[in-house]
Write a protein that binds this DNA or RNA. Structure first.
Lengths: 338, 338
DNA sequence: AGGTATTACGCAACCGATTGCATAACTATA
DNA sequence: TATAGTTATGCAATCGGTTGCGTAATACCT
């Protein structure tokens, strides 16, 4: 077969040293143009391919960015990933993607694996139950850029890419109030996560601002899985409070609730108005269409990608790791109209 | 800071050779248990981490599997990926994922990049317009396992993981006919792709079997993007054929059509019955709920993963690369009921 | 032409493992 | 105890580049 040819083969053929070949191929300034041209054309002629393994070893870097997401099969996450991949790819980096499946344990293992395999940077969206962050210590200690996306935590020198969940929650809630809702329910995900707890804060602020009541019954913490819809419906029906406005932490769950409520003969939006979150494609296809908060997943991915790349290129001071907050947007559709 | 310690450090500390350390760490049979224990415990004590770069170079393999998908942000693809990731991760492999964005050019570049970065195997779901397969030649020549998923082609020694699209198309169509439809329209994706052309074959067979008419007007080739919905509606309204049954190549597009047809005052399913494809979460949330073909994305991912791993482990003969066909399933919902 | 500054290149160490082959150490057998 | 047979280890080459340092070769200047 055709054994891979190396810089040594080239060097021998051309009668120069391997160092010269290497420098020529990397366009090093201390090599004459003439020599570079000779080397490069011979390299093409012989079909030379650089061996990444050797480069990695000698440079101690992999041109690879690690990513840990809770689940790949979520429309939001895969959209974020699409953005990240685009930027990384354009910058010549490969993406190693792994999923924590919402488990801190698996997140830990993945973080370790990626660290061991020598990623140059790590992007993370935290698992559902991550409460400890020691598994990122190695990255920080070794100054490997570490960036959190959406589901974040505050670690020294780590960037975060988020939206203003509190404000979004506030806006969504105030919209419901403006449409005449008096008895609001926030159906939340795990409140240990910043995204959901922040939205709750916004929800509470809006409720307080308009002198509505907020107590335990106005909040339902759920795992947002389809299986939990019944529980939500039960809450709505049996709490005794005449709920007329729902703010649901994601569109998918909101759509399920919508469907179930219709089955229970609630009229949407007449009886109960609903605002979801994410602007999932689904939100525009259900009947009635679902009001929601547009959550710029793709842009988040793009920004996350750009942020890593610039940190890797040194164009951003690593110490000055910053936090980027993207703009969200309330999309008003049928499910919340008076 | 703490510089990484190497097998040489261990060797010096223990008074043995680097080779012995290496073999001990890898549980090589020719090392005594006593020595192994000493080495391993010292390694733990000093916090030894194996340097993957060096291992890769010396073994010329990366413990990494490359994946090229058309788009990350598709519910189907990300579900497949979730399955692949699970298996790969369990087997100790990392996944480098890249997207072709439905462009053969980018697919080519990605294939090359992944090849250069030394992936041990490649999983591919082809781009929309891929018509040439030279970019996979290197893999085949060098016996790097190459597996196609869903959107496949027939290359020597390459496995494929698919469903029986022709049969699925047949079943879906026959269902519509059984519900009384006489004038059927198949709204297809790019017919150069196996998935869509096979479904067309099934569609045609069913139509023929039941002595219905099939001509150009019964087929609409579309790019299935939301922007093309109007074109589909126009086709339905203006062709002069009183279409009463639609077989649509994916649920998302089907849902859009459904919505638009309702706007045009078609009654679904009374006037027109619809069957989609994929069992996208959306299909159960639209009104009326959408009949569809369940497409086992996660299982495809799992199988693809298992297939690669066993090829890499040599537990499957590389030459005997096989083609796996998964079972699909017709899910009957409201949109197609008499 | 002689001296100095540049430029272009070669040398060889280094990155951190893996592994075929040789051999020392130890066991078992006669 | 000498000898053959195992078993456990060391040696050193190898994987394929990168890079600091030294110097030969060429250019520039007076």
């Amino acid at each position: 077969m055709d054994k891979r040819i190396t810089i040594y083969d080239l060097a021998k053929t051309l009668g120069v040293s391997a160092g010269t070949v290497s420098r020529s191929l990397n366009d090093h300034p201390s090599i004459s143009q003439k020599t570079k041209d000779r080397v490069i054309s011979k390299a093409n002629e012989l079909g030379y391919k650089t061996n990444k393994f050797a480069v990695n070893l000698s440079k101690q870097k992999s041109n690879t960015i690690g990513v840990i997401v809770p689940k790949l099969n979520s429309i939001f996450m895969s959209t974020v990933l699409a953005g990240i991949e685009k930027i990384a790819n354009e910058a010549g980096y490969n993406l190693i993607i792994s999923q924590s499946l919402e488990s801190m344990e698996k997140e830990k293992i993945n973080a370790k694996t990626l660290y061991d395999s020598g990623v140059d940077a790590l992007l993370v969206s935290l698992a559902y139950d991550t409460s400890n962050f020691d598994h990122f210590a190695n990255y920080i200690k070794n100054k490997i850029p570490l960036i959190f996306i959406d589901r974040v935590t505050n670690l020294p020198n780590c960037s975060t890419i988020i939206i203003d969940n509190k404000l979004a929650g506030f806006v969504a809630t105030e919209h419901l109030i403006a449409q005449g809702c008096k008895n609001l329910l926030y159906i939340s995900g795990n409140l240990k996560q910043n995204v959901y707890s922040e939205r709750l804060k916004g929800f509470q602020e809006a409720v307080a601002k308009h002198n509505l009541i907020f107590n335990n019954a106005n909040l339902l913490e759920s795992d947002l899985s389809p299986g939990s819809v019944k529980q939500a419906i039960t809450h709505i029906k049996d709490t005794g409070i005449p709920f007329d406005g729902l703010f649901v932490a994601n569109d998918s769950f909101a759509a399920h609730c919508l469907k179930e409520l219709k089955k229970e003969n609630y009229k949407i939006p007449q009886d109960i108005k609903i605002v979801g979150f994410n602007n999932d494609p689904i939100s525009d296809l259900v009947t009635p269409t679902l009001s929601t908060i547009n959550y710029p997943g793709y842009e988040m991915g793009i920004l996350a990608g750009q942020s890593v790349i610039s940190q890797l290129n040194g164009s951003i001071d690593f110490q000055a790791a910053n936090s980027i907050t993207l703009r969200h947007e309330l999309i008003i559709r049928e499910s919340s109209l008076k």
